[in-house]
Every structure is written in structure tokens, then in C-alpha cells.
Design a protein around this nucleic acid. Structure first.
Lengths: 148, 148
DNA sequence: AGTGATCGTCAGTAATACTGACGATCAGGC
DNA sequence: GCCTGATCGTCAGTATTACTGACGATCACT
């Protein structure tokens, strides 16, 4: 979906700039993640599970901003690839505790390198200072809104 | 879709920050545009048509980044609301030239005010300088990529 | 005139996420 | 110890959305 050049009225809209940049970044991710065999959202799950604290499916869904019913299929795919393991939580047997397998850690490392490369390609026009500024500004917006 | 607080690994991903901010902005737009009676994408079409040069459906689709078959329904809706008029292009009768009606101009003005307010609410945490920086950085990324 | 391409349109289809329900499990009151 | 209400993962069905392929009408070029 290549977007053509547009006039100043529309390109001044923040929604438009954000969407356009996001689409580009997602395209770059799709391209670089393809050899690794995981999608962008799957990378999100792997990143979420790479930590010391146990994570249930519903926690993961909440933090990723996807529905819990959608998370079922997402974890199904990762489990089928052998990257994530479900096991019953000993303390609350309703919960599935998700954990990375060895292959999962390996795939995460490769996917992270691919994602770094995608970001690097997106940001070629910006120097390091500007890239850091962009990250900081976006992070401030992300934290302050959508959190009462 | 409220996204919960997440760890530093995931929140460092540019895709995540962009998506999160975009979702927030789209929510704000939905809220503020509801009384006007147009969606965010319809505002995009109205903005595109607010200019001196004639625009065909396919041109509009290309500039908005939507499929030409999707644009059919989009224009259908705007025409049903009386905001946009289709007329056959005199020079190329395959084309539909799209034009704003008087009600269309009126709706555009109100929708623009609503969109400004949505952006203002998103950017409350940033001062004017920072908001301008964000816009500039995003615009540079938007122009340089997705255009060979 | 004739060939190939383009524009708007539509029907069918694919992808994606949500709604509502279910069994299993937990927490708290009594 | 039960009973009630709530939560977790799951699944079937459905809504939403965009795309694929085709069509008639029209154009450009020979």
C-alpha cells in the first residue's frame, strides 16, 4: 500500500503522519521478520515473555492490547512453532503460564536483530539525536494517555 | 482497547509506541468527530477534495492509501450524506470527478475543528516546541520513505 | 476499426477481531 | 463444607474490513 504524495492540508494531520510512518515500519518489519518466521505481533509476545515474572495469557493480552480470544490463536501459533510453552499455573489452575522455550529465546534474539534493522532503515533520514527525540516524545504521549 | 503498562523491552519498540499513540489519537477522533457525523477516513476524503484541482476517485484512493474498490463505498457514504457529489469528467468519461457540496464544506470546517481538538488533547503533555518537533520528525519520515 | 489499457463498480472471498457462551476453577459468605 | 458469583482459557458464530477477479464503458494508439 504505497501512499502517494498529498497536499499540505492532509499531510498536516497528525493521524496521517502517524499512520503513514507506522505502515512503513510495519512493511519493513514484515520484510525483515519473514526469514525469522515470526510476525510483528508474535515478536511482541516473545518480548513480553522474556522476563523473570510469570505471565498468563490474559496478562499478555492486556499488555499487548489484543483481545483475550485473539491471544488464544496467537499462542496457538507460537506453540505450534515450538517457541512458547503453555503450562498450568500451580497456584491458579485456571491460568496458563506462558514461557519461552529454548527455540523461543533463539527466535527472539534473531527477531530483535531484524526489528532493530527495520527501525534503523525507517530512521535513516534522522541522526541519532533526532531519533532519540522522536522516541522520547512518542513515549511521553504513550504513557500519559490511555492510562487514567 | 486500553493497553496496560508494559515492561521496558516492549515499550522500546518504535512500532509499539507509534501504534499506541495512533490508537489513542483515533479514539479521540472518533469521540470528537461523532457529533459531526463523519469518520476519520471520511475527513481525509473531505480534506483531499478541498482544493482547486479536480480529483478522481482513483486519485483520491491513491493519496489516501486505500484500495480503489474501498473508495467506492467511502464515496457512497459521503454522497448519501450529501457532502460529496460525483459528476462525470468531461474530458475522460471513465472518471468520476469528486467535489464537495456546500454541506460538505460546512462539515469539513466542523470536522477540522474537532480534529484540531483531538490533536490538542493528545498533545497536552507536550509544549508547543515539542509538538512542532514531533510533527517535523514524523513528516520527514513520512516523506522520505514510501517514495522511491 | 481494432487492440490493449484504465476507471468505477460489484460479487465473492479472505483475514481479522469481537460477542456470547461453555466448562473448569477460584474466592468469599454463610 | 457448600453456594454464589466471578475469572480464565476456549470455541463457535458473527461482524467488520479489505482484497481478488471480473465486468461494461471508455480512452489512447495504431
Amino acid at each position: 500500500m504505497a501512499i502517494e504524495r498529498i497536499g499540505p492540508r492532509l499531510s498536516a494531520r497528525l493521524t496521517y503522519l502517524l499512520k503513514r510512518v507506522l505502515v512503513d515500519l510495519e512493511d519493513l518489519h514484515a520484510e525483515h521478520l519473514a526469514p525469522v518466521g515470526v510476525s510483528g505481533r508474535e515478536l511482541g509476545v516473545l518480548l513480553l515473555l522474556d522476563g523473570p515474572d510469570a505471565t498468563s495469557q490474559q496478562q499478555a493480552a492486556g499488555r499487548l492490547g489484543v483481545d483475550r480470544t485473539t491471544m488464544v490463536g496467537l499462542v496457538d501459533g507460537l506453540e505450534a512453532k515450538g517457541l512458547v510453552a503453555r503450562r498450568a499455573d500451580a497456584e491458579d489452575r485456571r491460568r496458563n503460564v506462558l514461557a519461552l522455550t529454548d527455540a523461543g529465546y533463539e527466535a527472539l534474539a534473531r527477531a530483535l536483530r531484524a526489528s532493530d534493522e527495520a527501525e534503523r532503515q525507517l530512521l535513516t533520514e534522522l541522526d541519532d539525536d533526532e531519533s532519540a527525540q522522536l522516541r522520547t516524545l512518542l513515549a511521553r504521549l504513550a504513557w500519559n494517555r490511555s492510562e487514567p
